Computed example of a mutant assay.
Amino acid sequence: MRTRSRRPRKWFMALQSAAVLTLGLVAAPAAHSAQSPYERGPAPTETSVRASTGPFQYAQVSVPGAGFGSGTIYYPTDTGQGTFGGVAVSPGFLSPEILIAWLGPKLASNGFVVITISTNNPGDQPDSRGEQLLAALNYLATQSPAAVRQRLDPGRLSVIGHSMGGGGALRAADSRPDLQAAIPLGGWHTNKNWSNIRVPTMVIGAQNDFIAPNDQHSQRFYTSITQAPEKAYLRPVGTGHVNVGTGTPVVGKFVLSWLKRFVDDDTRYDQFLCPTPSGSDLVEYHSTCPHT
């Protein structure tokens, strides 16, 4: 795997424009110039980031386990825009893969190679789920079908997990500082200190969570993450422990925006993350949100 790049983590990058004179005539306005070589797809809107699918056609394939139970890979079929970042997703305690399967179409159709997994055992604890997330990323890069590997950038990888899978995402990020992003959804873990994480991490809690109460889990995780270059913590309105992982349009919006910003370095998604967003669909939102 590629060593984590030291690409600038800037939230606001000035867009450059110029009037081009050719033979004394003013040329037509220049098209948008990508600020990142990994920018994929059209400019986002509030509607597009909330939608269940994006602009890319995608395919899916079921795969056997290789350090994880089994999985499904979703990947863009486009071959004209270069390679895509990768994402591994774990469900929670006693939960089947189908509960986090919504992230496959959501993210693949927005330009990511995604593997959603079932775990070796439904009762696997968070640290085991973290190991299985990393095994799934390794599978994407080295053992997945050729059509998948041809579309994957193995140096731009990330993890997502729900509940104990969210705890697994934290463990994976703690173990692999070269990951580009981590997102625990209603995360659960007995460890509350994640000060060693150096991966941009978005902690998404629920408005009402009686299984992984925020003051015992998500909030404490966020507070303990002191070494990551960027971090955020939010609680969407109307979410409980289950549907913060099974997905709502608001959860999908922030998951997609975080991955686009830190896996793709796509500054077009800054608008959804910084300055600190607010609105009737958020109970609270906190982030490092740095300024240039």
Rank of each mutant, 00 (worst) to 15 (best):
G86F: 13
A31N: 14
F262H: 04
S95A: 11
T288K: 06
R129D: 06
G24I: 07
S95I: 12
N138L: 08
F221H: 08
G168S: 02
V251A: 08
L140E: 05
P44V: 04
V255T: 11
S90R: 00
F221I: 13
S48G: 03
E97C: 07
H291A: 10
T22S: 15
P236A: 05
S109K: 04
A146G: 08
P29G: 12
I160K: 02
Q60L: 13
T226V: 05
V148G: 00
T47M: 14
S280F: 05
S280Y: 06
G54T: 06
G41R: 04
E46M: 05
A172C: 01
D178S: 13
G104T: 09
C274K: 00
E46I: 08
A212K: 01
L15E: 15
R176V: 01
Q227R: 15
T276S: 11
G123N: 08
V255F: 12
I160H: 02
P145A: 04
V49Y: 07
P76I: 04
G252R: 14
F12M: 11
P275Q: 04
I183Q: 00
G80W: 07
P277F: 02
F56T: 05
Q57D: 14
P229S: 03
S95V: 13
R176E: 11
D127H: 07
S257N: 06
Y285C: 01
T248Q: 08
F84S: 06
G85F: 02
D78Y: 05
T248L: 08
A28Q: 09
A101Q: 09
P122N: 10
H291I: 10
